[in-house]
């Protein structure tokens, strides 16, 4: 070992962040995390940590390994969404099961507005989301670029793509039926809103020639032209 920390625990306004050194191997990170947590005893018990992996892409298995190490010490892994670090948001997979997230507040305020997600926060992503990249956000997501096939955008509120949506979008991911997905070119691999799932027909219909909105009506996802 180089004597450098593979993992740094950093407390902040919004809880404790586990910062993983970009150069460290995942094994070293887990070892170091375990050493640090056992040193701290039961101090962190019941807390929820957030992962910061910098530019590294954590695989699901790696995340699971880290999260189960934390669980050994009674610590939960929390979704790392937030309005900061938009650029990194993509490669730091903030993939986390919705169960660890804050519950949504009531979605009764969804009347007559396109941006009507349950959350009032919106993540602005100023880039194209490419295959293998993923955005998870508690709130609304606006992508200034394309969402390519193989990419995933998941939000608890609405999703707006100022470009082509070719990948998978899941709006209202915690059960908000009023969430919408909107894109300049809506050609997704699959669309999900709340618990509803739909996909384009196999024979491939006409390509959209203008902005469209997908929303749940009468228990199915319907797509209609966007009328401002």
């Amino acid at each position: 070992m180089t004597g450098q920390d593979a993992v740094v625990l950093k407390g902040g306004r919004d809880g404790v962040a586990v910062i993983i050194d970009e150069g460290a191997t995942i094994d070293a990170a887990i070892r170091d995390l375990r050493a640090k947590l056992s040193h701290a005893g039961s101090f962190f018990k019941g807390a929820a940590f957030r992962l910061e992996a910098g530019r590294r892409t954590l695989t699901l298995a790696e995340r699971d390994a880290l999260s189960s190490t934390m669980e050994e010490f009674g610590i939960k892994l929390r979704e790392s969404g937030g309005a900061n670090g938009v650029g990194d948001e993509v490669e730091t997979p903030s993939v986390v099961e919705p169960r660890n997230q804050r519950p949504l507040r009531g979605s009764s305020d969804a009347v007559g507005s396109t941006l009507s997600g349950g959350e009032d926060q919106t993540l602005l992503v100023k880039r194209t989301i490419r295959s293998g990249q993923r955005i998870d956000y508690e709130g609304n997501v606006v992508v200034m670029g394309d969402v390519n096939a193989g990419a995933v955008v998941m939000s608890t509120g609405d999703i707006v793509v100022l470009g082509s949506l070719r990948g998978l979008a899941h709006a209202g991911a915690q059960g908000n039926d009023d969430a919408v997905v909107m894109a300049f070119r809506l050609e997704p691999t699959q669309l999900r809103i709340s618990q509803y799932i739909s996909r384009p027909p196999d024979e491939g219909g006409p390509r959209p020639d203008g902005p469209e909105v997908a929303r749940v009506r009468n228990g199915v996802i319907q797509i209609e032209a966007y009328v401002p």
């Binding site: 530019r55 892409t57 993509v90 490669e91 880039r127 989301i129 490419r130 295959s131 293998g132 990249q133 390519n148 096939a149 193989g150």
Partner: peptide, 14 residues
């Protein structure tokens, strides 16, 4: 093309 897209994303991160 799909793989190329993935690679472009990874290159951006580097």
């Amino acid at each position: 093309v799909r793989d190329a897209d993935r690679i472009i994303g990874m290159l951006e991160a580097h």
